[in-house]
Amino acid sequence: MSASAPDPDAEREQSATEIFGAALGGAARRAGLDPADSSSTHKVVWSAMGGWRGILESVLPSLAFVVLFTVKPDPLILALGVSVGIAAVFTIVRLLQKSPPAAALGGLVAAGAAAALALWTGRGEDNFVPGFITNSLYGSVLLISALVGWSLIGLAVGFLMGEGTAWRSDRRKRRAFFWLGIAWAALFFARLGVQLPLYFAGDVTALGTLKLIMGLPLFAPMIAVTWLVVRALYPRTPSEDVAVES
Rank of each mutant, 00 (worst) to 15 (best):
G32W: 06
A48W: 12
L212S: 07
L228T: 12
T209S: 11
F178D: 03
V242T: 10
F65R: 07
L105P: 03
G202M: 12
L105H: 07
K173L: 09
G208E: 07
D7C: 01
G202L: 09
A110T: 13
V229M: 11
S83L: 05
A87Q: 04
N127T: 06
L216V: 12
V141A: 15
K72Y: 11
W184V: 04
L143W: 10
S140R: 00
V204H: 00
L63S: 07
R29G: 04
D170E: 10
R94V: 08
V225E: 04
L187K: 00
G54Y: 01
L108P: 05
Q195I: 11
A224N: 01
F20Y: 07
S58N: 01
L108W: 10
T209R: 11
P130L: 05
A224M: 03
F20E: 00
G139R: 03
F177Q: 03
A146N: 10
T205S: 12
S239C: 06
G162V: 04
R172V: 12
G181V: 02
I86C: 00
T121G: 08
F200G: 05
S4M: 03
A22F: 03
D170W: 02
L117A: 06
R53W: 15
L95S: 09
A10C: 00
T134N: 15
V109D: 00
A183Y: 02
S15Q: 13
S38L: 12
R174D: 14
L96V: 12
L108M: 10
D9N: 01
A27F: 12
